[in-house]
Design a protein around this nucleic acid. Structure first.
Lengths: 247, 247
DNA sequence: TATATCTATTTGTATAGTCAAAAGCGGATC
DNA sequence: GATCCGCTTTTGACTATACAAATAGATATA
């Protein structure tokens, strides 16, 4: 028999992860949950405390409990949004869309991503420019099945990463970080020599077992690094200097 | 006025982080803590639950509560121990000590690490070999003030990273991940071409505001990558595939 | 209009207990 | 010795309740 507090926790977690309740939405107050589950307030409180601990919920006296904004989140999840990090570190950031087309998932890609070939996807290529230097090239595949609104999104205001976060806030992600040499195309776009070392971040993102996006971000090795301070026992959200730093 | 459960939590956390209570040590049972702090059992329970949540403590009915083993831990902290990861992925791993000497911290290093020049340190250089291919070169500085036992440690059985973990289990760490090109010395040792891209991990580790070690690990870009799956709402300790993968 | 005060709501912390489940231990039995 | 049984310890889940702290919104006051 599953404990009550766990059932409450999972119910709410599921609704947040599904996107059923979105960041900023109010979640029922303790008193209501007490009635819904016919249990004591302490039990509800324990479930909500766990959600706070995990960073899914924020609570405020008198005001209520709300789905948290996932924006700046957890460790490698931080490696999300180049622009925000750059700007908050006092740099000027802009982006250019280099390519943008609706296409079908190829056989090779389908095998690699473990998805079905022919799925309709949006391919976006985006260049990130920090302090007038090209700092990253972002090659992205967005699955239109999961994010239909992407089809007509020009990504002018917000780069794809940021825009997607507003559409699909809570997700599971797989990250791979590698060092590669710049191929001809990459070198030309980033204005570096062919063969120069580049930091390569690949991220695949799911929501509810459904693949949302696949992205490969390539940084010139001399212009970028990932950094972070980790205190083992700390809450993920209170880490001290989560940042992608310009080197 | 600080809540009681927080005081209990912090007291125990401090003892674990100090190395006062070491992994496997038993911590007082709820009943004893109730007496120590003259509070109710629920309050003690809340403090201990938080410690479990943070991964510092494991509990078992009838047996008691114990300081957890930090071995495989938290996100980028995983990027710790090349050998363990390689072996658990079915690869053969060995290491060679290339250099090993007691020295004083230079002026340049002192500035970079924000520590006092002249401090007595142990410099170790270690080559990691996976499936007979050189996979990483580890250049490490160990501060003998913090780890006096290191002076007479030959690092034959366990490479420095692993040995240190057994000496200083809980610590704060700063990580930087970069892509660099191999310099002449590195290229020769790793048997790659000069200028080839390498994945460079720098980690600086503290215990109690005292610097323990500084290490720079260089991987050939084509032979190594960092990877991990992250579920946003999950406990750090239950991540699904934390690994450094051979590519 | 602006400011101070009161009030009601909601979360935060804590108590003092109950009952349950897991698991180590010793003893009885085979 | 090995196996099973019950006792005891320790953690786990939960209730019902109390009071405190924060604060949004209404009300009264200057």
């Amino acid at each position: 028999m599953e404990p009550i507090y766990l059932r409450i926790f999972k119910d709410i977690e599921a609704r947040i992860l599904n996107g059923d309740w979105r960041p900023g939405d109010r979640i029922p107050k303790e008193h209501d949950l007490v009635k819904d589950y016919s249990c004591s307030r302490m039990t509800v409180s324990k479930a909500l405390a766990t959600l706070v601990e995990r960073g899914l919920v924020v609570r405020k006296r008198k005001t209520g409990s709300f789905v948290a904004s996932p924006q700046i989140e957890r460790t490698v999840m931080d490696i999300q949004d180049i622009g925000t990090e750059a700007v908050s570190a006092g740099h000027e950031h802009r982006h250019e869309i280099l390519a943008h087309k609706v296409d079908a998932l190829s056989q090779t890609e389908a095998v690699q991503l473990r998805w079905s070939a022919g799925a309709e996807v949006l391919r976006v290529q985006c260049l990130h420019i920090v302090d007038n230097k090209p700092t990253a090239i972002e090659r992205r595949i967005i699955f239109l099945d999961a994010v239909p609104l992407a089809r007509s999104e020009p990504f002018l205001d917000a780069p794809p990463a940021k825009w997607l976060l507003s559409q699909v806030p809570w997700s599971k992600a797989k990250h791979v970080i590698r060092a590669v040499s710049a191929d001809a195309a990459t070198a030309r776009i980033l204005r570096i020599e062919r063969g120069e070392p580049c930091l390569n971040l690949i991220r695949q993102t799911w929501q509810n077992e459904r693949i949302v996006t696949y992205v490969e971000i390539t940084h010139p090795g001399d212009r970028f690094q990932f950094a972070g301070i980790f205190h083992p026992a700390e809450k993920a959200s209170s880490r001290q200097h989560p940042h992608e730093a310009l080197s």
